[in-house]
């Protein structure tokens, strides 16, 4: 005896597979995005003048790449004096020996593009474009909105140290992750993706 077949289930599963394929393609490198993504201050927030007094970051939001973190770890130096990086894929770190977000100077944040096979916090950093906004929350209860100026990819062997860590006359931000060609021998990427931005406004 043969039961009535249900092509509907087959088609549903096929559609799911197709959707997955599209998801993979659309979330892969080089995916196109139109327009920029901004952040807004909560109703009733009091505007603060920039630059702010120093206060450590406690959270970061980048709506354009769907990133929200309620905590930020402090980063220092590795044993060879390179920048320390978070010990897991998802965490975002802040170089605590540099400028605090909202103070004059570059506040430097770093997170992995991937780590031990898991997608990193800054996996889609290269999707950001000039005009996208980044929101950083601080320990003193204030928040700072940064605007992306440019996104660059630089060789780690010719890292633009001065541009990334050097002094600035206003409050700026740097977001760093890996990019470019993956060197399987070294298990590392040859380049860094660096987002440069400046503080636009702050509130509490």
């Amino acid at each position: 005896m043969t039961r009535t077949r249900s092509p509907l289930l087959i088609w549903v599963l096929a559609i799911v597979a197709a959707a997955v394929t599209l998801t993979v393609l659309m979330t892969g490198p080089g995916s196109a995005r139109t327009g920029t993504t901004t952040v807004s201050a909560p109703a009733g927030a009091a505007v603060e003048s920039l630059p702010l007094a120093a206060s450590a970051p406690t959270g970061i939001e980048i709506p354009a790449i769907g990133l929200t973190r309620d905590s930020v770890m402090k980063l220092g130096y590795n044993e060879d004096l390179s920048l320390q990086v978070p010990p897991d894929a998802a965490t975002v770190g802040w170089f605590s020996r540099g400028a605090a977000p909202g103070t004059n100077g570059p506040a430097v944040f770093a997170s992995h593009v991937n780590y031990h096979g898991a997608e990193g916090g800054f996996a889609h950093l290269d999707d950001l474009t000039a005009g996208d906004q980044i929101l950083v929350h601080r320990a003193d209860g204030s928040s700072v909105a940064f605007v992306v100026d440019r996104v660059e990819q630089a060789s780690k062997q010719a890292f633009p140290t001065a541009q990334v860590y050097g002094p600035t006359g206003d409050a700026q931000i740097r977001l760093i992750t890996c990019g470019g060609q993956f060197d399987a021998d070294r298990r590392s990427y040859e380049d860094n993706v660096i987002v440069f931005g400046h503080a636009e406004r702050a509130w509490r």
Binding site: L81, H112, Y115, G120
Partner: peptide
Amino acid sequence: YPQGGVATGDSQP
């Protein structure tokens, strides 16, 4: 300043 590049990735894309 921190030396050189930043090691923020260790896996194939």
